[in-house]
Simulated scan of single mutants.
Amino acid sequence: MNRAALFFDIDGTVLSEITKEIPASTIDALKRAHDAGHFLFINTGRTYCSVPVELKKLPFDGYLCGCGIYFTFDEEVIFEKHLDPERGDEIADYMTKCQIDGIFEGAEDVYFTSRVSRFDRLENTKKYMNNRGLGIERYMEQR
């Protein structure tokens, strides 16, 4: 039997961009592919903590997250790359000094600046992450 490794993006592929839900047809197709012996992976720019819980209930064999900085297979972390902590501190200090808005993303959480952003999209992202229990423990200025 020929087995394939199939990679799926989240937004607009597994999750409908219109309903923000997983279509029943997608769930069925994923189960059939997995039952046929294929390996299923999420491949996303999101970090692992930002993968919606409902996707983690589907038969994925692993996750390639954060634009390639974190890879799991069969619940084992195969590869992960972290920003050097000193460099992260330098960037956070510079962002604060210059009042630059942004997000730091990690495998376990996301970190926002403590101030309200002038960008609606960033504030909407902050609300979305907060509703999922992310980005509420610490601000990026708190190290």
Rank of each mutant, 00 (worst) to 15 (best):
R118I: 04
A24L: 12
R132L: 09
F7V: 08
G106D: 12
E108R: 14
T44Y: 00
G12P: 01
R132H: 11
F8W: 01
Y63S: 01
T26Q: 03
K126R: 15
D28R: 14
T26E: 02
N131C: 13
E54V: 11
A107V: 13
F8T: 00
G88P: 00
F79M: 15
I100N: 05
D101K: 06
T72M: 10
T19S: 15
E86D: 07
G66R: 01
S114D: 11
I100A: 11
M1D: 13
N124W: 12
I42T: 03
L64M: 14
T96N: 09
K97Y: 09
A92V: 14
I91L: 15
F41Y: 15
R115T: 14
I78Q: 09
N43E: 04
F112Q: 05
T19K: 08
K57L: 14
K57N: 11
G102L: 04
E90G: 00
A107P: 12
G37Q: 07
G37M: 09
K127Q: 15
E75D: 15
M129T: 07
I69G: 09
D120R: 15
H34N: 12
I78R: 10
M95P: 03
I78F: 03
L40H: 01
S50H: 04
I69Y: 07
G66V: 02
V51D: 04
D93L: 11
G37T: 10
E105R: 11
N130H: 13
Q142M: 06
F73G: 01
V51R: 04
Q142K: 09
E80C: 03
E21G: 10
L64P: 01
K126E: 05
K31T: 12
Y94K: 09
C65L: 02
L55P: 02
G102E: 06
I10K: 01
T113L: 06
D28H: 13
T96F: 06
F71A: 08
D84I: 04
V116K: 11
T26F: 00
R138H: 13
L40P: 01
S25C: 02
I18C: 06
I136M: 08
D35K: 15
F112K: 06
I27K: 14
S16H: 08
E80S: 12
G37W: 05
D101A: 13
R143Y: 11
A5Q: 05
D93V: 08
F73H: 10
L134G: 08
E108P: 01
T19Q: 07
N2M: 08
N131T: 13
Y70G: 00
